[in-house]
């Protein structure tokens, strides 16, 4: 099988958006373009409000990804778990699609006997280990997130430790919203190493608004820009195969 690339957006937030487009619609848009959106809701001691919770689940659902609400302390473990599981889910989706092509529209992994399923999972695992991965991380820095930023930074460093142990290549980019002037600011350009965020994170200021929708829209555009730039420099487009998950 050709070596492909998985593209994910990882949104880390603690509540509801209050400006710009509907984030759930923006996540659906991302999915249409083959980008998975995962969401992690970070709690303090307090309980997240119903509306915020619904939005977190909604974004992940329409973005074809996974959502999880956790206390700040569990963030490191959750971030890497969500990313890995979303990878497996996407790859499984791809395999399912192939199975349907071979065995007809009713076939899916769930319908295979356990023995066969084990074999299929071995392939999924193999792919998960070798596939290239691009993760764009969107961090909510509005008001109440301020106290959690240190934990977020640690969780992201931890994520790069986990993913860089894989055989496949990784690239990370980090954006925060709201930005200093606009809705979103880039604080880390695509890089396989996450260490450099250590210097940027303490300087972040937090704003009052939460433009989650525009942030996702901007993230999708970043992926597209990157794609076209790559196309300019490497003339054969076959080099980069993006793996997309179908319903």
């Amino acid at each position: 099988m050709r070596k492909g690339t998985l593209r994910q957006i990882l949104l880390i937030t603690d509540g509801c958006s209050n400006q710009g487009e509907d984030p759930i619609a923006m996540a659906a848009l991302a999915k249409e373009q083959g980008i998975t959106v995962n969401v992690i809701g970070v709690l303090d001691q307090d309980i997240i409000d119903e509306q915020g919770l619904r939005e977190i689940e909604g974004i992940a659902q329409s973005g074809g990804g996974i959502s999880q609400v956790v206390y700040a302390k569990q963030l490191s473990q959750t971030v890497q778990m969500v990313t890995r599981k979303a990878m497996t889910q996407t790859l499984q989706g791809v395999i399912n699609r192939e199975l349907k092509q071979i065995l007809g529209s009713h076939a899916s992994i769930e319908h295979l006997s356990p023995e066969k399923r084990v074999e299929v999972m071995e392939v999924v695992e193999e792919l998960g280990e070798t596939v290239n991965l691009q993760v764009l991380i969107l961090v909510d820095t509005s008001g109440s997130m301020k106290t959690k930023l240190q934990t977020v930074k640690e969780a992201l460093l931890d994520l790069s430790i986990s993913l860089n142990a894989r055989l496949g290549n990784n690239e990370f980019s980090v954006f925060v919203f709201p930005g200093k002037k606009g809705e979103v600011d880039r604080i880390l350009d695509w890089t396989p190493k996450m260490e450099s965020i250590s210097s940027v994170f303490p300087k972040l200021t937090s704003g009052g608004i939460t433009p989650t929708g525009p942030a996702i829209r901007e993230a999708v555009q970043q992926f597209q820009k990157r794609r076209s730039l790559k196309g300019l420099f490497t003339h054969d487009g076959d080099d980069d195969v993006y793996i997309e998950q179908s319903m």
Partner: peptide
């Protein structure tokens, strides 16, 4: 979670 279960089965096998 069938996925993780199957990879555990793989190891046990």
């Amino acid at each position: 979670e069938a996925t993780t279960m199957m990879s555990e089965v793989n190891v046990l096998k």
